[in-house]
Amino acid sequence: MATLRVEHLNKTFPAIERGSDATTAIDDLSFEIGGHVFVSVVGPSGCGKSTLLNIVSGIETATHGSVSVSEDGSPARLGYVFQEPRLLPWRTVMQNMLYVLEGEDVPDRARDYLRMVGLDDAGGKFPAQLSGGMQQRVGIARAFAVEPDLLLMDEPFSHLDAITARSLREQLQGIWTEAKKTVLFVTHDIAEAVQLSNRVLILAPGGRLFADLPIELPYPRKASDTEVAMAQAELLRRFEEMQEETDAARATDVAS
């Protein structure tokens, strides 16, 4: 398990057209996570959640500040579950797994993780032969199979129907408890964040850290549990607070 350290992170996208302003996606963000934790980042759309994951994974670079992922000083292995499955359509499920894996026990590991998401028989199929939910499960199996020190998940259930998403959330808790990974999970769904994580970071528009809240409830959690519902209400209250503050700040801006 790795430690992710984000220090004074800033990401500004340059203006696309002349005359328009540069956009600040993340502004002076600092936090640290490590160990067997499930940390969710929630916030309204456009608050830099996905950008944060892209910087952590190295797909994008930071404008200022630093992001380091270390596993006892050595560089850490990352797993990434995207909003869409992002499988290679011309490779079978098994080949998709093998594409990202390295090492000797690779086919066994791929099979183990496919079994974990309930797709032991799907190895020889092409992605187009699977439903959307099954494809996303392959994406999850792939990310766990690299046995990452840090697992990044970017709204992995947002494109799925409510019933599939619900069952995958329950499965994910089981896999996470078993595999003991550090997870950084991005979502705009507060209920989902509360059900899955033991720590929630709320980002305000402009990519500022608004709150850092622990959720101390035992796993597995169901969306219908009373404690989960209460924690959800509490989080929602903080979210509304954040929105009121943002609106007030915007009003002052306009007035001045």
């Binding site: 994974s57 797993g79 990434y80 594409y99």
Partner: peptide, 9 residues
């Protein structure tokens, strides 16, 4: 997006 996925891995 597939190239990005490959980079991330």
């Amino acid at each position: 997006r597939l190239v990005q996925m490959s980079d991330a891995y």
